[in-house]
Structure formats: structure tokens, C-alpha cells
């Protein structure tokens, strides 16, 4: 196994993804990466399917939210002595082929964020794209960063900076929290073009406009 893959852990948080998770995990595993999958209290067979796909599975006994699940996976990766930590979405919207570019970008950065607007988006509706653009504007305002994308789940970070980026937002506001911590921590951040592929499945699991209200509430009212 090459040193890059040996020193990297790909963290995936999954909730009720039993239908697709085996494929998502096994694609990444077949490319040589070690996958830590956090099953966030799913009521389906997500854990078993992920194990079948070749992941190390961590299971939250109760559902906590995506932010909490990612942090659990990151903690586990740190305990395993990983040097690079990649986060990857469970619904199949990301491409494992983008991982090496993200890690390569850590050469002179602390964290590399995937950007679908620098890269490409497949299968998104106009409405979805408009919502994403609005989210980017909002997120830049909140975080103080100037980025082309917000809240893309595909990222890579150096293990040393992980403690500075500790996620305390258990649910979806963790993405905004992360950007704010990058800004306040003065970390070096780069954006890397990635391909995001929306499917009927990922669209159904994705965030709706109403949930944005919940995210903003969490962001402002939960320390």
C-alpha cells in the first residue's frame, strides 16, 4: 500500500443509507483507501452493508446528526494515527477519484475543500443550483472566507489541525461551523475542483429550504 493511502482515513457518516452504502464504500476501498464509516444510529442495515463493502464501522447507538458522526470518525482516525483525514458523503454524490487531488493540495494548506462550482455538477435541477448559490453567498458572509462553494462534504485535512476544527454542532450546522473555525483559526485553506453527481437518491436525502432555517437556528443559538 502506498504511504499516502496508508496515512489517510476516509471518514463517511451515514444514516439509513443501507441501499447505497455498500457500493459507495466498496468503490473507495477498491481504490486502496481505508474507510471509517460512522453509522449514525440507522434503523436499516447500513452498518452491515458498510462492513460488507470493507469499511471499519463505528456505530452511534442513538442518532445524533451528521456533524457528530463526522467528529466521531475523525476522532477514530486520529486514534489510528492518520496523517490525513478525508470526509466523504454517504449518498454516492462524490467521486473517489477526487481524493488524491485533495490530499495533494495539503502540500501547502491545512485543509482542502472540494468545490463543485470549480469542478462540475451532474444531475442537479436549476432550483437546486440556485439554492446552492444562495448558500454560498450566505456562508461567505457568516464565515468571513471567500469561497466558491459552501458545505461540500468532500474535504481533506491534516491531522494536526483536526483539534482546531472540532465539530460541536451535532447536526447540519457543522459545515458552517467548520468554515468559521478555519477563519478564526487562521488556517490555510484551498479549494479543489471536484465532481458532484446528484442522483434521485441523493436529492431525496439532501437538504430542503426549510431545513436551512433549522441550520441557521443551530448556528446562532447553540454555542
Amino acid at each position: 500500500m502506498d504511504p499516502l493511502r496508508r496515512d489517510t482515513r476516509v471518514v463517511i457518516a451515514a444514516f439509513n443509507e443501507g441501499k447505497v452504502i455498500r457500493n459507495v464504500v466498496s468503490e473507495v476501498v477498491r481504490d486502496g483507501w481505508s474507510v471509517i464509516l460512522v453509522d449514525d444510529g440507522s434503523r436499516d442495515n447500513t452498518a452491515a452493508e458498510a462492513r460488507a463493502g470493507g469499511a471499519v464501522v463505528l456505530r452511534h447507538v442513538v442518532n445524533l446528526g451528521q456533524g457528530a458522526a463526522l467528529q466521531t470518525g475523525i476522532d477514530c482516525a486520529l486514534r489510528q494515527g492518520a496523517k490525513y483525514i478525508v470526509t466523504f458523503d454517504a449518498d454516492g454524490q462524490h467521486n473517489y477519484a477526487d481524493i488524491p487531488a485533495l490530499i495533494a493540495a495539503l502540500e501547502d494548506a491545512d485543509i482542502a475543500l472540494g468545490s463543485r462550482f470549480l469542478g462540475s455538477v451532474e444531475g442537479a435541477t436549476q432550483r437546486r443550483m440556485a439554492m446552492l448559490r444562495a448558500a454560498v453567498m450566505m456562508s461567505n458572509r457568516l464565515s468571513g472566507l471567500r469561497l466558491t462553494d459552501a458545505h461540500c462534504g468532500l474535504r481533506a485535512m491534516r491531522a494536526e489541525v483536526a483539534p482546531k476544527l472540532r465539530i460541536t454542532q451535532d447536526r447540519m450546522a457543522h459545515a458552517s461551523e467548520l468554515l468559521r473555525k478555519i477563519h478564526t483559526g487562521g488556517l490555510r485553506v484551498v479549494e479543489v475542483p471536484v465532481t458532484v453527481r446528484y442522483t434521485a437518491h441523493s436529492m431525496a436525502k439532501g437538504q430542503t429550504g426549510f431545513q436551512a432555517v433549522r441550520i441557521l437556528f443551530d448556528y446562532f443559538f447553540r454555542p
Partner: peptide, 20 residues
């Protein structure tokens, strides 16, 4: 909120410990 943070920590520790 404090209570939830504690539940998160407990759940996280349990998940990692079990996997290890």
C-alpha cells in the same frame, strides 16, 4: 444543550471503543 453534549460524548466514546 449541555446534556446533549454529554450524550454526544458518551455515544462517540462507545462507538469508537466498540470498533477498537
Amino acid at each position: 444543550v449541555e446534556q446533549q453534549e454529554k450524550i454526544t460524548q458518551l455515544t462517540r466514546e462507545l462507538a469508537i471503543l466498540r470498533a477498537e
